[in-house]
Design a protein around this nucleic acid. Sequence first.
DNA 1: ATCGATGCAAAGCGTTTGCAGGGGT
DNA 2: ACCCCTGCAAACGCTTTGCATCGAT
Lengths: 164, 164
Amino acid sequence: MTCRALDPAELRSALEAAGWRYTRQREAVYRILSQVEGRHPSAEEIYQGVKDSIPNISLATVYKALEALEAAGVVTKLPALGAGDGSARYDARADHHYHLRCLHSGRVEDLPTPYDPDLLARLDPELDRRLRDQGFHLTGYRLELVGYFGEGASHGGETHDEAS
Amino acid sequence: MTCRALDPAELRSALEAAGWRYTRQREAVYRILSQVEGRHPSAEEIYQGVKDSIPNISLATVYKALEALEAAGVVTKLPALGAGDGSARYDARADHHYHLRCLHSGRVEDLPTPYDPDLLARLDPELDRRLRDQGFHLTGYRLELVGYFGEGASHGGETHDEAS
DNA sequence: ATCGATGCAAAGCGTTTGCAGGGGT
DNA sequence: ACCCCTGCAAACGCTTTGCATCGAT
């Protein structure tokens, strides 16, 4: 259900096809992002991770790399939602999917449910038709299950809330 | 399908029940927000609208009023999604519902589709059960139809893209 | 050799906060 | 009268930008 991360050659192709150059900074940012499978780090967290391989990279370069990767269609930006530190999260998955969002920590996780391109048609066929008639081009759905993990409940030994 | 806006007395009750005072600034912010039925202005747009009745109101007060109204449960904040000017939008509807988001303008509209509290159970019963077992408290869904209005198509004479 | 990318620092922008004075209870 | 709220301005934090240098093609 998860399509595997692009290898460096594929990433290069994706960048160049979109008119961007292939650099080790962009490769490193993409690698960090695809390594944290199912989680979604902030630009700052990516920056910290990339510094292991490129110690003198700057945060601005991380932002610019994320912009290039998003324009190349290999990364998706998940805007902040108020919880946590208010920073955007990033997602290296190429396929559409849904998210689980924790209201306590701001953490976002992937859901293992298959993405349904015809969700609207299933939900409300008449609205689906009406929107198309009005010329609306539906490019995708953004579905998040919003909630939080209760204190008493176990979750495989993992803690789902981060700071604050 | 849309529940009507609160009248001033009801708004007062809602604010006081949550431990906030009732002020004309908060009333004016709420009124602006409930007048633009189906659309979702930014704090700045609300500020401009409120200035008609309270010329010397400050933008900070609008933000504080929105915070109070959200805490009182009569307003919902819709975070920015990258398109448009990157500002959050606000929603005066008390009931849960879905949204339509335009990738060109950042504009957000309500959808007339009924909200389904059991959407996850319909979508993926097994995942629904598993999340509950893990102690996840689902408080709601955030579903947006993302896309844009094509140039050639008509839409009742209205323009759906704003600046940029 | 060309022209885009990097890295540093400074600016931008929506939003939040500190504080003195005003308004709701 | 009390204490919260307002309005102003300054601060905040994430993100973007300007610019000289570096590096990919």
